[in-house]
Design a protein around this nucleic acid. Structure first.
Lengths: 185, 185
DNA sequence: CGCGCCAACTTGACAGTGTCAAGCTGATCT
DNA sequence: AGATCAGCTTGACACTGTCAAGTTGGCGCG
C-alpha cells in the first residue's frame, strides 16, 4: 500500500516530543517543523493544518493506548476480575504518564474526533475494555461497559491518578476500590 | 468590600458569549475587548493575560454549575435516591448545555485550577454531591462519592450526554441505569 | 482653589502563530 | 532529452498575546 513519507513521521514524533516537554502551548506547526529541520510551511504538505497534525498525533496516541491496555490485561493473569482491574490500571497509568496525549485523544477541541484514522485504534481500545467487562454484565445491554469506561475515564480526567490530586482531598481512594464497588463484591 | 469594576464584568460576559457562539478558538482577549467596546489592551488591566480571563470565566461557570446542581437536587423531591439522580442529571445537563464552560472548568490547560477564586464554588459543588452520596455509603472513606463523581464526569466528558454520542454506539445507556448499578438497588 | 496623583484606558509596537500563493528542485516517466 | 509533478522553500498576510509609553479624568490633599 502507501508508504508513509518520512517527514510526516518526523513531524509526528517532533509534536509528541514538544507536547511531552513543553505542554500543549509549545506544540505548534512551526516548532514541529523547526525540530524536524524543515521550513515552517512544510507541514502543510502532510497535514491539513494544525488540527491535522494534532489529529495524527492523537491517532498515534490511540495506537500506543490500545497496546498499553492489551499488555496490562495480558500481564494480569487469567482471572476475569484481575484482567479488568489490570486494564483499568493501564488506562490510569497511561493517562498519568502521557497527560498531553491523553488530553489530545479525548478532550482537545482542535482534534477532529470523527476522523477515520482515529477509528481503528480507538475501536480496538473500546473492544478490549468491552470484552473484559462481559463476564460481569448482569444486563443484556452495554450499561456495565459504559459504567466502567465512564468511571475510569472520569477518575483519570479529574486527576485522581496524578501525583497532585484535585480539590482538598487528602488521599483519594484507590480506583480498584471504586471498581469493586461497581462489580459488587 | 471590593466592588467589581464594570469592564471586568463586561469582559467576562463577552467571553462567555464568544465561547458559546464561536467555540474556544474565537475566545480571545482582543475579541472580548472588541465586544466590550474597549481597546485591545484594556483587558490586561483586569486580568492576568488570557489565562486570567479564562480562569475568571471558569470561576463564574463554577458558580452557575453549583447553582444548577442545587436546584436540580431541590427539584427532585425528598427521596435520597431521587435527589442523587437529580444532581447527576443536573451535572449532565449542564455539561451538554454549556460544553464550552464545562471544558474550561475541568480540562482547559490554560486555566489555573489552583486559583483561590475557583475554590469556593468548586468546593460547594463537590459538597452538594458529597452530601447526596452520604446516605448510600457502605464504607467509612469517601470512595462512593469519588465513584459517583468519576462516573458522572466521565459519562459527560466522553460525550454520552450529547445529542451526538461518541464511537459507533447506537444508543448509549441512560446514566440513571449506570448509577443504579453502582448503588446496587 | 490648585495641584499632584493614580487608576483606567488608548496607542503603538513587537514577536510569534496559522495559512496561503508563488517559486524552486530533483527524481521519475515517456 | 524534455515534461511532469510531488515535496519543499520563500515570502507575505492577518491575527494573536504582551509589553512600554502616553493620555485622561476624577479624587484627595495642602
Amino acid at each position: 500500500m502507501s508508504e508513509t513519507p518520512p517527514l510526516r513521521e518526523a513531524l509526528i514524533q517532533a509534536g509528541i516530543g514538544l507536547l511531552a516537554e513543553g505542554g500543549p502551548a509549545t506544540l505548534t506547526l512551526r516548532q514541529a517543523a523547526l525540530r524536524a529541520g524543515v521550513s515552517h510551511a512544510a507541514p502543510a504538505h502532510h497535514f491539513n493544518g494544525l488540527p491535522g497534525l494534532l489529529t495524527a498525533i492523537a491517532a498515534r496516541a490511540f495506537d500506543t493506548f490500545a497496546q498499553t491496555l492489551q499488555t496490562a490485561r495480558d500481564g494480569a493473569g487469567d482471572d476475569p476480575r484481575a484482567r479488568l482491574h489490570g486494564i483499568c490500571q493501564g488506562y490510569l497509568t497511561f493517562a498519568a504518564a502521557h497527560a498531553g496525549l491523553f488530553h489530545l485523544m479525548f478532550t482537545a477541541p482542535e482534534v477532529d474526533r470523527r476522523d477515520p484514522t482515529l477509528e481503528p485504534a480507538a475501536e480496538l481500545s473500546y473492544q478490549i475494555l468491552q470484552q473484559a467487562c462481559r463476564p460481569f454484565a448482569t444486563h443484556a445491554d452495554d450499561r456495565l461497559e459504559v459504567a466502567v469506561w465512564s468511571m475510569v475515564h472520569g477518575y483519570a480526567a479529574l486527576g485522581f491518578c496524578t501525583p497532585t490530586p484535585p480539590r482538598p482531598m487528602a488521599k483519594p481512594p484507590e480506583f480498584s476500590d471504586l471498581l469493586n464497588e461497581l462489580l459488587q463484591t
